[in-house]
Simulated assay, not measured.
Amino acid sequence: MGDPHHDLTPSGRMKRPSISEVCEWVKKSWEDVKAEIIVKSFKKCGISNALDGTENDALFEEGDTSDG
């Protein structure tokens, strides 16, 4: 998508990407997400916190925006 050169249709419109191109974009995006971010997200939502309540403080921590 960031490529400034695009193939055009005969009418001059930009051609839509192929399914395989879109799949590659999605695959690359998923590969770029760090596992640490996923773990933090689940804990922040309370999905994977310890059932004994020892990790409940994660629900009320300020957000860490340094991860991007």
Rank of each mutant, 00 (worst) to 15 (best):
M1P: 14
G2Y: 08
D3V: 05
P4T: 15
P4E: 14
D7S: 13
D7C: 04
D7Q: 09
L8W: 01
L8R: 14
P10R: 06
P10L: 13
S11A: 10
S11D: 12
S11R: 06
G12K: 05
G12Y: 07
G12R: 02
M14N: 00
M14V: 13
K15R: 15
K15N: 01
K15C: 08
R16S: 07
P17K: 00
S18K: 07
S18G: 04
S18I: 03
S20K: 12
S20N: 12
E21F: 03
C23F: 03
E24Q: 11
E24D: 15
V26N: 12
V26C: 10
K28W: 08
K28P: 00
K28S: 15
S29L: 04
W30L: 15
W30Y: 07
E31I: 00
E31H: 04
E31Y: 01
D32I: 00
D32L: 10
V33K: 02
V33R: 06
V33L: 14
A35R: 12
A35V: 10
A35Y: 05
E36C: 01
I37V: 15
I37T: 14
I38Y: 05
I38A: 09
V39T: 10
V39N: 08
V39M: 11
K40E: 15
K40L: 10
F42Y: 10
F42G: 11
K44S: 10
K44I: 01
K44G: 02
C45M: 11
G46A: 02
I47C: 08
S48I: 12
S48A: 07
S48V: 05
S48R: 14
N49P: 00
N49V: 15
A50W: 07
A50D: 15
L51S: 15
G53K: 01
T54C: 10
T54D: 09
T54H: 12
N56H: 01
D57E: 10
L59H: 08
F60M: 08
F60H: 06
F60R: 09
E62R: 03
E62H: 03
E62P: 03
G63K: 09
T65S: 04
S66V: 02
S66P: 01
D67P: 00
G68H: 05
G68E: 14
